[in-house]
Design a protein around this nucleic acid. Structure first.
Length: 103
DNA sequence: TTAATGACCTATC
DNA sequence: CGATAGGCCATTA
């Protein structure tokens, strides 16, 4: 079944390795910035694990979601570090350096 | 079909 | 500057 989520998934999958995007940004690229909530919902259901790099999606603060439960926040930090993403002392991603604006 | 929920963001007090 | 409320959209029950 095809839904608006596919749009969001497509954008999220477009995120290049070593970069991250915010929910609002993904929503914006998906078509509308108001989809920010829908984006979170889409990743929440995460119907295609392994195909959708949810760890590359962060909130506008650069921090991970509160209920990040696909493996643990700890895991996400590791994954991003493996991709070359720099983390701040506060544990947030440096959006100024790794924020994917849609290329 | 209506009502309720959600990994958000922006604006206002 | 810090905290609170609201809004918007789609999905699920």
């Amino acid at each position: 079944m095809k839904t608006s989520y596919d749009l969001i998934y497509d954008v999220v999958m477009r995120i290049p390795r070593g970069k991250v995007a915010t929910y609002g940004l993904v929503a914006n690229l998906a078509g509308n910035r108001r989809w920010a909530r829908v984006v979170g919902y889409a990743l929440h259901v995460n119907p295609k694990p392994g195909v959708i790099p949810c760890h590359r999606v962060v909130n506008r603060f650069g921090g991970l979601a509160r209920a990040f439960a696909f493996g643990g926040v700890n895991m996400q930090r590791t994954l991003l570090e493996e991709e070359g993403v720099a983390f701040r002392p506060d544990g947030t991603v440096d959006l100024e350096k790794h924020l994917w604006t849609g290329d």
